[in-house]
Design a protein around this nucleic acid. Sequence first.
DNA 1: TCCAATTAATTTGCGTACGATTATTTAGTA
DNA 2: TACTAAATAATCGTACGCAAATTAATTGGA
Lengths: 165, 165
Amino acid sequence: MTTKTETRATEVPADTAGTIAVPRLDQQLCFALYSASGLMTKLYRPLLDPLGLTYPQYLAMLALWQHAPSTVGELGEALGLDSATLTPLLKRLEVGGLVTRRRDPADERRVLVEPTAKGQALRARIKDVSAGLACAMPLEVEELRSLHRTLTGFVAKLRDAASAS
Amino acid sequence: MTTKTETRATEVPADTAGTIAVPRLDQQLCFALYSASGLMTKLYRPLLDPLGLTYPQYLAMLALWQHAPSTVGELGEALGLDSATLTPLLKRLEVGGLVTRRRDPADERRVLVEPTAKGQALRARIKDVSAGLACAMPLEVEELRSLHRTLTGFVAKLRDAASAS
DNA sequence: TCCAATTAATTTGCGTACGATTATTTAGTA
DNA sequence: TACTAAATAATCGTACGCAAATTAATTGGA
């Protein structure tokens, strides 16, 4: 280890004029979304823990309460998730007694997923989640609505862009 | 049926008498964030694959290009990630030759992480990522800026809320 | 000096998340 | 009928992401 400067090839000085400009983390929209989504999950966790649900499991139950029975493919479409993700997630919900999984007699390729009575009973306790979250949410109602509207449009366009690959 | 009084936008009428109303998936801000973040990751993947980086690894490199050496804790603070997540991620970057990890001589509890020459060289190729992404981004510049501004404020408030637990 | 509390990173266990592959079933077609 | 292509889940391998437990180093007293 010489105390001499070892900078030889493709010298990339630290904070000088010759530095290649790199986008700052806090200027990246993707990072803002990444952070917001992660923080949201953290916000939900203490509310969902008593229900024995993880955050993605909660989203899956929301989708199933809205439309059941659903195939794995329909759930994947609604949630934007792959069957490789959903299959084990749904198996855990099944083990927990919240949903049933069965092959569609009319088309044995499909798997029909449906909330059980216990799964339906959870609906009653979901209000507490929404209420608790509304309390913890640090934004005005109008701001939330606006943000949600903007994001929904954004997501729709991103889905188009993603499907065009 | 049931065209009841529907002044509250957050209230969802039960589709059947006696059914407990449950928030619709597409009315949940958390799900919009979840979807947007996931789609964003999908958008980055084909651009980062040639660089041998995953999306979280890309964020970590952004943080390190901006400030190095950093401790694992500092990176965790910047990225909003746990050391249990970062340790294996950084080890993979180390195996890939992009960063070095060494104990801080002044405080052997800390681990200092720093880009290698190879890691610095990647900076030059990041421009392509940003450029390629800008092309794929289906929103007007002004909309993106506005969304980013809103999200940044939202994230700041969520962090406050999370730290107050 | 000694030792209990604190701090920092790692390890362990579980649950997502996705690309690629495989197995089964169905639909289409000669 | 038999043969092929398409559709649908499940499986495998790798990589996050976090809670809880563990290990190691430092700090702050009594």
